[in-house]
Amino acid sequence: MDREKLKADIKEIVEEWKTKEGNLIMILHKIENRYGYVPREVSFEISKLLDVPLARIYEVITFYNYFKLEPPGKHTVAVCMGTACYLKGGAELLSELEHILGVKEDETTKDGLFHLEIVRCLGCCGLAPVIKIDGKVFGELKKNDIIDILSHYTKQNGQMVSGVGSEVSGKP
C-alpha cells in the first residue's frame, strides 16, 4: 500500500468525524469498510490524528466482533447461527462449509478466496437457515446446496456472480 495515499485517505476519514463526540467506532467502521480490516499502521495513524493512545483504539477493536485485525479473504462466507437458523440446520451448513473449504471458523482458505465466519443473526429468520456471501443472502438452504453456491464463486474466480437476487452489493 502506498504510504502517502494511505495517510491521505485516513486523514480524510478522520477529518469528517474529528469534531463529533464518540467518533472512534464510526471511524473504525469507515476504515473496515474501505480495507476490509483495520491494519496496524492505520491504527497508528488514527492514534496520532485523534490524539488518543493506541491502547484505546485496540481496546475497542478487540471488544467488538465486527472489527478485524487480519485481512479477510476475497469473499466472506458468513453462516448465521441465530436460534432459528440453528434449529433448522445452521450447524450442518457450517460443517459442510468447513469440510469443503478445509478451514475452521474465522480462518481463510489457503488461496485467499474464502473467509469463513459465524454471525449471530442476519435478521431474516423467516428464510432460515441462511448463509451470506459478501453482501448477498442465500436462504432456505440444504447441505447439498452449498457446493453449487461456492462453485459460482470459484468458477468466475474474482468476478461477482450476478443474476439472482437483487442485493448484489459485495465487492472485493
Partner: peptide, 23 residues
Amino acid sequence: RLGAGAFVCGEETALISSVEGKR
C-alpha cells in the same frame, strides 16, 4: 451511531458507553 457486533450493547449502560465510542 453504529453498533459493532456486541450483544451486551443492548443493555442501556453498555449502549451508552458504545455511543461514546468506547468498549
